[in-house]
Amino acid sequence: FEARLTQASLIKKILEAIKDLVTDANFDCSPEGLSLQAMDSSHVSLVSMVLHAQGFEMFRCQRAVSLGINLASLTKILKCAGNDDSITLRADEKGDKAEFVFESQSQDRLSEFELKLMDIDSEHLGIPDTKYSAIVEMPSSEYRRICSDLGVMGDTVRISVSKESVKFQVDGDIGKGSVCLHPSSVVDKPTEVVKISLEEPVDMIFSIRYLNYFAKAAPLSDTVTLSLSKDFPLQIEFKFGEQMGYLRYYLAPKID
């Protein structure tokens, strides 16, 4: 397996977005691309990442291989890569180590690291294609702000979506609060749009702590999409660009 990405910053941001939620994970390499699926230690949420092969500058994978990686160790290695460095990842069939090569844009600096891999026995969950009742698209910076603002008030947030608005409400020890967003009527910048598509209104409760973990993915994408259906996990998606791939989080709802 060998793959090269032009911008190390993408992998660095992906890692920042999952390392506080997941300790160890298998990076699954196949001819289609690089993917990862992992639950947090409490088994309340699930991370699903896909980087399509065509998003890489170079991608070669003859046989599917899983690279078991400790994310804290990978973070240490990726700290050594500049944001604009290219990154080449290599693994042989034995799958006991992975090689990382970082090269500066001017090609005058090359650094090489080797990471010991681990055997991770993780169960892979099947995520069904779902027709969600409500889909909300909003700026990821707005999502991050709401989660951080409401997170100081309480542990859970009630998300209510109607045709007219999406409302985030918190009810905590010191009092309560809410933020309500209406779909944008005037669109100046596509990245500042709030869009709601609705089959039926939803009203669900989620842990704010996890929503705040997911907000660490905001640097990956200008917009985030929240998909909700009653009594079903919330899906939060950050896309890396049209052809590149995505990072999705799933969070089990709190049931009254």
Partner: peptide, 14 residues
């Protein structure tokens, strides 16, 4: 108090 369900109770094991 709302109770928290596990994510694996929603998605089938492959």
């Amino acid at each position: 108090q709302a109770s928290q369900k596990s994510i694996s109770s929603f998605f089938k094991k492959n």
